[in-house]
Design a protein around this nucleic acid. Structure first.
Lengths: 322, 322
DNA sequence: CCCCTTATAGTCAACTAGATTATAAGAGGG
DNA sequence: CCCTCTTATAATCTAGTTGACTATAAGGGG
């Protein structure tokens, strides 16, 4: 183990005040009744979080501890999202740096929620423009698109105007471009830049008008949630992570609805089934479900063996094109 | 801006000793004469790194500062890799946590190297088993494979033995499985676990025999390098990042050789050309190169416009299968 | 028994990707 | 000057994938 101080390895004096505070923050996702949801605390405006401390064995175990303490919810699958250090803050007179290490966690709602003040909230309360399952959402046509175009038209220079129009068109699929569900983070950041999101005002940005879109969160929590959504929407296409969000036994349509909830778009049913079956991701339990309202559906369970195999192969979901 | 302390938001007492040291560490990559290389300092056993300090505007700018200071090399493209906190260390009597935030940076060698003690080293000095361009490397057949199988056979329980064999087969493509260049990190970690890599001895692990593979680095730097290699090998398949490593003007074969160097495997030539052309990633300069040894090759340059377009589409390289 | 629902199976065409072959255009040696 | 080497570039062929669509099966309810 190397324990030389990095700052002195090359003969340079170590800068003063190197120490920072490290914060762990979690995007905990479940799919409840066909709605993708995030676990929130406070006034449903915060993600579970807490400082990384000496008693934590690792970053991940620290995160698990905080989430369980704040929400009573044990975590299963965890993956790191991103580390931010954008925020400075004044602490007892001197400047203090805060590093936020964010994680994506997948779980199921059924785990008993403790007495804590936590709540599952649909993604689309915070990002109503992200749900394209029933076509283009009203808020996109009525608020987001006109405001974005106005923001583009507002620019001083011609080049900036067309640049802004083009960025908006790519992010939201205007002008006959395909809508790409993976661009959730870019869309949020574009709305932030355009002052369409109320977090932007807190940073002292001027806002053209009072209308904003979606429920805000404290600090940069909504941006971190957008990061988690984008990551998950990308990941479901090549890793079998959806199953972390499913009950032990499910029908293929339930599985499809979960994927659609996460992706924010509908999938062709026969093609979805074909892809799931030919990849051998699931196996029949032999039982059927009568709760479908029509012909009973076969019940399936995840083939846990694929977790070993798919390190090589990857899995696919039919979300490729528009 | 939210400036409430996270530790007290939920009425819990803030744990003591929350502060940690944050270290920035860079995997700087270039392709020199058809060899993929990393920028090293010291005895070519360390990656550029340094503490994140108050005077840095952001994590990225801190990283740029350290790399430029230690190597004289300005950085272009940067992306975050991973944040580790595995290492504790004893500093003036009390325990001190170190968080390492690692980045992948892409550049070109031609940028003048300062007087610093830095060096470009081929990836494959550290990971000789990762270069499959000329078929299965000697060290894999002679050292890695037999030692891994011996390690598997060494296990006490039958289940552990077959489990180890299966993990080795997946990671390295034994037993007619395809070799997947993206599994560079898994391969390194497997060799670490099997004691085939000399870093493992430093952590007090027992090693079955003296033979180890590849040049070691200090601390966990080789693991971070493996993380960068795996990330880059994955990313070149869907984002046009190769061009960050190319000179302004190049032939299609030079481009192919660069991709092959990074991927560690050869690519079918006509298919590569077809994919590059039909994606309109490049445009002809009108010039030709006579340095090819045969028929002169057209020179191309990257179409920078695609950086705007590919947020939607992604790009592909023919590296899909074995 | 009819009709509603949903489940499940099968078809068809367009496209993609891997492999292979053929032709073009330079350099260098005899 | 021609032959042969090299590499560049174009074209073909085939198998597999994918998206859209159609057809049949099997339950419940009026």
């Amino acid at each position: 183990m190397d324990d030389r101080a990095k700052g002195t390895r090359n003969g340079k004096a170590a800068p003063k005040a190197k120490e920072v505070e490290a914060e762990l923050i979690a995007v905990v996702v479940a799919v409840n009744d066909g709605e993708p949801a995030a676990l929130t605390i406070g006034q449903a405006d915060s993600l579970p979080s807490g400082p990384f401390a000496l008693e934590h064995r690792s970053l991940q175990s620290g995160l698990r501890t905080w989430v369980e303490q704040q929400t009573g919810h044990p975590l299963g699958y965890i993956e790191q999202l991103y580390t931010f250090a954008d925020r400075d803050r004044i602490d007892d007179g001197r400047q203090q740096r805060v590093i936020s290490i964010s994680y994506l966690a997948l779980t199921r709602k059924e785990h008993a929620t403790g007495a804590s003040t936590c709540a599952w909230r649909s993604w689309y309360e915070y990002f109503p423009w992200e749900d394209h399952r029933l076509g283009i959402p009203k808020v996109e046509a009525d608020v987001v698109k006109p405001r974005l175009l106005a923001w583009a038209a507002d620019a001083e220079e011609t080049a900036t105007r067309s640049e802004r129009r083009r960025r908006a068109a790519i992010a939201f699929g205007f002008e006959d471009r395909p809508w790409n569900e993976e661009l959730a983070l870019q869309r949020y950041e574009l709305l932030y830049e355009a002052g369409l999101v109320s977090e932007a005002t807190r940073d002292g940005r001027s806002i053209a008008s009072a209308s904003t879109a979606g429920t805000p969160m404290i600090a940069d929590h909504r941006r971190i949630l957008a990061t988690g959504i984008a990551r998950l929407r990308s990941k479901i296409k090549y890793r079998p992570v959806v199953f972390e969000l499913m009950p032990p036994v499910f029908t293929l349509l339930q599985l499809q609805r979960a994927v659609e909830a996460l992706a924010g778009r509908l999938i062709n049913k026969p093609n979805f089934r074909r892809l799931i079956e030919q990849q051998e991701l699931v196996e029949e339990t032999g039982e059927t479900s009568l709760d479908t309202g029509g012909r009973p559906a076969k019940l399936y369970q995840f083939r846990h063996a694929v977790l070993d195999e798919t390190a090589v192969a990857g899995t696919k979901l039919p979300l490729a094109r528009g």
